[in-house]
Design a protein around this nucleic acid. Sequence first.
DNA 1: ACCTGAACACCGTTCAAGT
DNA 2: ACCTGAACACCGTTCAAGT
Lengths: 262, 262
Amino acid sequence: MTERNETGEPLDDPDTPRGRGGASAVIPAGSPGSGRPGLDRRRILGAAVEFIDVNGLSALTMRRLGAHLGVEAMALYRYVPGRESLLDGVVETVIDELYGDPDVHIEPTHGWEDYLQRLAHGVRRIALAHPEVFPLVATRPPSAPWIRPPLRSLRWVESFLTALTTHGFSSEGAVAAYRAYSSFLLGHLLLEVSQKGVKISPLDEPETPVRADADVQQYPLVVELEPLLSLDESAAEFEESLENLVDRLQLVRRESRQPRRD
Amino acid sequence: MTERNETGEPLDDPDTPRGRGGASAVIPAGSPGSGRPGLDRRRILGAAVEFIDVNGLSALTMRRLGAHLGVEAMALYRYVPGRESLLDGVVETVIDELYGDPDVHIEPTHGWEDYLQRLAHGVRRIALAHPEVFPLVATRPPSAPWIRPPLRSLRWVESFLTALTTHGFSSEGAVAAYRAYSSFLLGHLLLEVSQKGVKISPLDEPETPVRADADVQQYPLVVELEPLLSLDESAAEFEESLENLVDRLQLVRRESRQPRRD
DNA sequence: ACCTGAACACCGTTCAAGT
DNA sequence: ACCTGAACACCGTTCAAGT
């Protein structure tokens, strides 16, 4: 009984040229050498990611994606069960880019702190590279309760838990760390990405002061602190919060190594 | 020039019976005494929230919402510019419930730590009360970069900043605290809510073990730690992380009171 | 003043038909 | 084997028309 994998689609065997790696999973076509080959699940998902990056999520329809691929919408249904699982595939495709990131290795050769740092920065690069896709990464219902955004794959969970348990964390400690880490990444990156989206969606208007016509006086502190509030300190905040989280996990690790008995 | 408010709709004057408060903004109708009064922006938004709570976000269409209100879809356009701003209104409606929450007061009479605690728990109650709406709260593009989810209103930002600056925080410290606080709430609550959604979406199946048919052996740690991973410790995690955040902000506060000059 | 009917352009999805 | 055309049910939204 071949049930369903994480996203509900049939999983093609990986008979594509690039074996497992290559950060450039988005644009290129199927077999190397031919110009516009036949359709292909990978090609469709790549085109969908590209389409969302350029036109925004709300612009993605089966018909338009078909047109983008030079094909009628109905042709897509041979490779994808429907729009919903197309979106699941988009999320999977984007997260899979992490495997091609040379700065994120699975084995933590420089300690678990270094591993958490590199992994976090890798996820952040992906979020910033696909700001229109990231809300999808954040909100698509996971297939299991412990597959948490934004690291939505068994493979990354395994990698994470391995890194920590092989570096002095107890099982409980590693799981607690996984939870705290997911929560931090999700919150920070979703905010950073949405902040980025706001800045460009209005026209080039260099400034849009507060005054909502009427109640300027109603929110004096917001008005006064607007210059501070408008600063984009996302990068610094990310580093700082990440550092702080790692420090906190160091305590978790120490406590979990010697479970005190009363 | 009456431009647009935060959500882009014309804002009706509040000529509705309940003056500003009342946590029960969802179900009740317009004027008290009459059974099914005329339409009304508030009534429409309340019905939309209720509809999403019951049927899920994807089920909400203008036509179905109209039917739910005993009216043709086209009648809604007299009160709401379109579907997109209906969703903005839904988000606003849900967040406004915070004002009716007796456990969340604006003035922090028991210190800023207590204020942050009560506010956080209030937001959490809302997220858990409207799990299908919360992803919308999390991802709708804010109207300004410093209106951050999940506290998406000028009023709450003002309240937050007031509480902190009147309790020893510098401007910079208060703004930094606002950022860290938003990020924590967003990440944790979005994960908690989506986790909750997963648990009920499949049928009553009490257990859905890992085995994705093939690669059971590929993720041995996930398999081994599945019992731990499956535990729902959201509530405890929330308390702990919140406590930790408050502690961290205590340091920010102390540092920011005496800006050292070198 | 408030709601409706009919209409338009566009969706996702199906299925028999083409090549 | 792979794609298309036509069709179906359903969308959001507009606008003239009803009451």
